[in-house]
Amino acid sequence: MIQRVQSIWLFLAAAILVLMLFLPIVTKENQTTELSIHTVGLYQDVVNKPGPGVLKETFTPLLITNIAVAFMCFVNIFNFKRRVLQKRIALISILLIIGFAFWCSVFAQKLPGGIEGAHFDFGAYLPALSILFCVLAILGINKDERLIRSAERLR
């Protein structure tokens, strides 16, 4: 059934990954400018000037990976009839999210002057949260499998 708890966990994992598109991962400030790394690219913002930052460099492969992993988690919701496949895709999603998080840290090194003096924003912790949601989805799938096996035993 699509209303099972693992569907909620997979939807939350996908939503968290989509949220990473809008939140900065790493921010570094100096006296006049603020540089921030998003999955879209490197943004530069003038400290005393209101308004949005300027996109200095785009990270297209990172953006495509972020969207693909989020889409994979979302599409996995509709595999509710094939629990084994749903569990395998959730495990693959976890591995891809780990690789994506590592790749984000590699792109964070591209800040001018390195990562020294930079602070990690909320976007840096979102991959760990999406991994947690995928693990909770796998636990829900396992619970469904045990329930179905026990119901078949009673027949």
Results as ranks from 00 to 15, higher is better:
residue 1 M to S: 12
residue 3 Q to Y: 14
residue 3 Q to E: 15
residue 6 Q to C: 04
residue 7 S to Y: 01
residue 9 W to D: 10
residue 10 L to N: 02
residue 13 A to D: 11
residue 16 I to S: 11
residue 16 I to G: 02
residue 16 I to Y: 00
residue 17 L to G: 03
residue 18 V to N: 04
residue 22 F to I: 13
residue 23 L to N: 08
residue 23 L to Q: 10
residue 23 L to S: 05
residue 25 I to W: 08
residue 27 T to S: 15
residue 28 K to Q: 14
residue 28 K to C: 07
residue 29 E to M: 09
residue 29 E to C: 02
residue 31 Q to S: 14
residue 39 T to G: 01
residue 40 V to F: 07
residue 44 Q to I: 09
residue 45 D to F: 12
residue 48 N to P: 02
residue 54 V to Q: 13
residue 56 K to Q: 14
residue 56 K to R: 15
residue 57 E to C: 00
residue 57 E to T: 10
residue 59 F to I: 06
residue 59 F to C: 10
residue 62 L to S: 09
residue 65 T to W: 10
residue 67 I to L: 15
residue 67 I to V: 15
residue 70 A to V: 00
residue 73 C to H: 01
residue 73 C to Y: 00
residue 75 V to W: 12
residue 77 I to M: 11
residue 78 F to R: 10
residue 83 R to E: 06
residue 83 R to K: 09
residue 85 L to A: 11
residue 85 L to Y: 04
residue 86 Q to H: 08
residue 86 Q to D: 09
residue 88 R to N: 08
residue 88 R to S: 05
residue 89 I to R: 06
residue 91 L to Y: 07
residue 93 S to F: 00
residue 94 I to C: 03
residue 98 I to T: 10
residue 99 G to P: 15
residue 100 F to W: 11
residue 101 A to Q: 07
residue 102 F to K: 13
residue 106 V to Q: 15
residue 106 V to E: 15
residue 109 Q to E: 14
residue 111 L to A: 11
residue 112 P to D: 07
residue 112 P to A: 06
residue 117 G to W: 09
residue 119 H to I: 06
residue 121 D to C: 06
residue 124 A to T: 12
residue 125 Y to E: 08
residue 126 L to I: 09
residue 127 P to R: 05
residue 133 F to V: 01
residue 133 F to Q: 03
residue 134 C to T: 03
residue 134 C to R: 00
residue 134 C to L: 03
residue 137 A to T: 07
residue 137 A to I: 01
residue 141 I to R: 04
residue 143 K to G: 04
residue 145 E to K: 13
residue 151 A to V: 09
residue 152 E to V: 00
residue 155 R to A: 05
